[in-house]
Amino acid sequence: MPKLGMPPLRRRALIDAAIMTIGERGTLDVTMSEIAGRAGVSSALAHHYFGAKDGLLQATMRHILSELNADVRKALATSRTARERVSAVIAVNFSATQFQPEIIAAWLAFYVEAQKSQPLRRLLRVYARRLHSNLMSGLTGLMPRPEAERVAEAIAALIDGLYIRRALKDGTPNATSAVALVEDYLETKLLQHKKPA
């Protein structure tokens, strides 16, 4: 008789295997058999849990977004000031859990696939809206809303751009330099805002 907790464990194992396989290949052009083999389950079981490969890929993207969202919420809960809120959002995007080679490669693969997959495009829109909202939660306390909108858009572009650039390089991602680059931009904008008109 199977254990009660096995289906969630197997689903999670398949999602983790998908991230690792996509990360190694740098593409979503992987098979259910490869992912299932890496997870230590049969291909038939993978199909049973997720249907077609697209179902597993969407579940994988939702998992990555869910983990990122949970990390951001934890970081924001301990932020006392508007400035700390913005820095927390930036730091989480480059944390050890998020800014690792497999996750970076998976993000790049999902961005590419979203050009032809409406479900993945919708998930990426959810991510973009959340990122914008989380940044705005701090930025609106630091500058007028129109400027906060522009700065939030630029920070989001820097985060996405640093992921893309990192995906195209070999070696270990350098989260410290990535955070410093985004923080430098933010500090420049804050200083400009403080200057008298």
Rank of each mutant, 00 (worst) to 15 (best):
A39R: 01
G40I: 03
S42H: 02
S43L: 01
L45M: 15
A46C: 12
H47Q: 10
H47K: 12
H48Y: 13
H48F: 14
Y49A: 06
Y49K: 06
F50S: 09
F50P: 00
G51C: 09
A52R: 12
A52W: 03
K53Y: 05
L56P: 06
L57D: 11
Q58F: 04
Q58R: 13
A59Q: 02
A59Y: 01
T60L: 09
T60C: 11
T60P: 08
M61G: 10
R62M: 14
H63V: 06
H63K: 14
H63N: 15
I64W: 03
I64V: 13
I64R: 05
I64Q: 06
L65R: 03
L65D: 06
S66N: 11
S66G: 15
E67T: 11
E67P: 06
L68K: 05
N69R: 10
N69M: 01
A70P: 00
A70H: 08
D71T: 06
D71I: 01
V72D: 03
V72K: 02
V72C: 03
V72P: 00
R73I: 01
R73Q: 12
K74H: 03
K74W: 01
L76A: 07
L76F: 07
T78I: 04
S79D: 02
R80E: 12
R80L: 10
T81H: 07
T81G: 13
A82K: 00
R83G: 05
E84W: 02
E84P: 00
R85T: 12
V86T: 10
S87F: 07
S87T: 04
S87H: 07
A88R: 01
A88D: 02
V89R: 01
V89K: 07
I90Y: 06
I90Q: 08
I90H: 00
V92R: 00
N93D: 05
N93M: 11
F94I: 04
A96S: 13
A96P: 00
Q98T: 06
Q98K: 01
F99G: 09
Q100A: 12
E102Q: 12
E102I: 01
E102N: 08
I103K: 05
I104T: 07
I104H: 02
A106V: 10
A106M: 14
A106Y: 11
W107M: 15
Y111F: 08
Y111C: 13
E113D: 10
A114R: 04
Q115F: 11
K116I: 13
S117G: 05
S117Y: 00
S117Q: 09
Q118I: 14
Q118L: 15
P119S: 07
P119Q: 04
L120D: 13
L120P: 14
L120G: 13
L120A: 15
R121H: 11
L123S: 13
L124S: 08
R125G: 14
A128Y: 05
R129A: 15
R130G: 14
R130A: 13
R130E: 14
L131M: 15
L131K: 10
H132F: 09
S133G: 11
S133A: 14
L135P: 01
L135D: 02
M136E: 09
G138C: 12
G138T: 10
G138Q: 09
G138K: 08
L139M: 07
T140E: 07
P144Q: 15
P144K: 13
P146C: 14
P146D: 12
E147V: 12
E147L: 14
A148I: 04
A148Y: 03
A148W: 00
V151K: 04
A152G: 11
A152R: 04
E153I: 00
